[in-house]
Design a protein around this nucleic acid. Sequence first.
DNA 1: CGAACTGCGGAAAATGTTTTCCCGACCTCG
DNA 2: CGAGGTCGGGAAAACATTTTCCGCAGTTCG
Lengths: 344, 344
Amino acid sequence: MGSGYVTLEQVARHAGVSLATASRVLNGSTRHVGRSLHERVTASAHELGYLANASAQTLARNTSSLVGLIVHDIADPYFSSIASGVTRTAEDEGLVVVLGTTGRTPQRELELLATLRSHRARAVVLAGSRTIEEETTRRLADEITALGARGGRIACVSQEGLPADTVVPSNRDGAAELARHLIGLGHRRFALLAGPNNLRTARDRLDGFHSALSAAGIELDPRNVVHGAFTRDGGYESTRRLLSAETDATCLFAVNDVMATGAVAALRDGGLQVPRDMSVAGFDDIPTLRDLTPGLTTVRLPLEWMGEEAARLALDDDEHTEPRTVPVSGEVVVRASTAPPADA
Amino acid sequence: MGSGYVTLEQVARHAGVSLATASRVLNGSTRHVGRSLHERVTASAHELGYLANASAQTLARNTSSLVGLIVHDIADPYFSSIASGVTRTAEDEGLVVVLGTTGRTPQRELELLATLRSHRARAVVLAGSRTIEEETTRRLADEITALGARGGRIACVSQEGLPADTVVPSNRDGAAELARHLIGLGHRRFALLAGPNNLRTARDRLDGFHSALSAAGIELDPRNVVHGAFTRDGGYESTRRLLSAETDATCLFAVNDVMATGAVAALRDGGLQVPRDMSVAGFDDIPTLRDLTPGLTTVRLPLEWMGEEAARLALDDDEHTEPRTVPVSGEVVVRASTAPPADA
DNA sequence: CGAACTGCGGAAAATGTTTTCCCGACCTCG
DNA sequence: CGAGGTCGGGAAAACATTTTCCGCAGTTCG
């Protein structure tokens, strides 16, 4: 049947009760309704096939059941892992996730935030990694406070510095520890696939790696640091450039796993063997990439858990004046893509 | 300042015009508003920081800007590729995607559909693959007609048989063509990772493969057909079982790439080399898995495009009495994971 | 036995928009 | 100059709920 619109009023009339009573029965309320009326209402609702109008409820209650999730690219396994965690917590709470993708443009991120605000989203998880530009960060902070002025709460993954709760992976320390491991293997000449110049996550990992090198008294040849897109193809492309510049590096660190994947492909296409001719390491430990051959040495982040936790932060409505921070430590995972250098 | 709620009424009062005029200026309308008032309203709106309340608009217009997307598991690259396509079209149209995950339970799928209906979603893309059970299919069909009775349109990816537009990959033909290629390599004894018994996609691929074998006069040893989860670990597990049963197969077909990935890992852990000791083929050509070694022979589906197309079908509001079907052909991609059998 | 309280039901206001009427002003054409 | 038309503006109804307030009955307590 389902001929269209069954409203609460029709249900109330059919059951011979008032709108108020029907509302109290069918959607939660603090108040009790007598047994007989209660049954009459549920029976009518079922018979007519009543389904509450979510917009009307949102309007009347002035709070929705929507949780926003903003990522750069949902096809990127890094983000889809986080998304998986976010949806899990949200759905466990009976909420619905609205997904926005930025395509890595800060402008789009602001638009999405405004859209979510206009939908009265109860919470938002911002998983896109921030750029280092002042201007956009400032406008983002404005949007966030605007959203906070309504009931909406927001949580970020991976970027401190915004006025919001944040799940912060140890990009710096993880990369440093990875670097120490690689140094321990005997490597002294490193190449770095640094990703985009303005991405904070990329910068932090780079910094961490770099500082560990410095601490060990290792110089980094600037020609061995190459910037490019934060994607598989970006990694491939950057590695090609390294090779055509005849790099002297024995070990290559890509700031994330997907770039490292591209790097391995480029090395292979260039006739080099991993790890015999070049060791390769990444960051993230993307589940889908764990079956690569050789297995990628990387820094494991619990991505799904980070998504879950961010959603929890955003949903939990405790009072807290200061933005909270949940640190997440990365664990170095050693696999076959790294080995002592040939000349060691 | 964004101290909270700025309503259209406040804007109207601030600009000294009626609610109607303010509405016509700020949100589209067929009617024109005089130049001076127009400017006054936009100025006031900007000054006060007005942002329309989406629920109120949905309620008044009786149509929302939401597009539903239902998948089994957003962390699965198959679904995240499709999701990427869906979000792209939706966002191009200025719409917002709400994402629901079923965890592969049909019951949850129905719940999500009801939720989306209650939100007056303008369109829904159903990407989860259907089971073969009559009962759930029937109830799903009911939900779909209920949604259609409102303005909502729905489109499916991959499963014909529901009263909705569908993007249909050639699971059967693709698998058959793949089988013919493998037979051409000289294989005669095949093992099949069949996935879950009740999943239509899995069944169709299996059927296609099987029919090509039959056509070539090849018998399939039932002990070489093993069922398991539609996941990487399912593939791993199933392959272990094959190996411990001392399969005589020379070529293994997994009904999707993620299972094939698990299979390759299990073979390697079992001391077998791919393709020397066993050829392996999959289905889908998941982008993230293209860098596997050896490269996986598979059937390529344009997953992102399929998502885009499904969203287009669901959004396009032409009249059409019959459900439409968009066939998508898969292309066999030969890579290094398959080779002639050792005894050929 | 009356006053205060409690439990349950309904009327109606409130939520923030869109949209349908209606009305007045101006314009055009016969 | 008047009839008919268009154009721009506003009042108010509609949209589907929730929630506040009011009142009635029955109960309890002093």
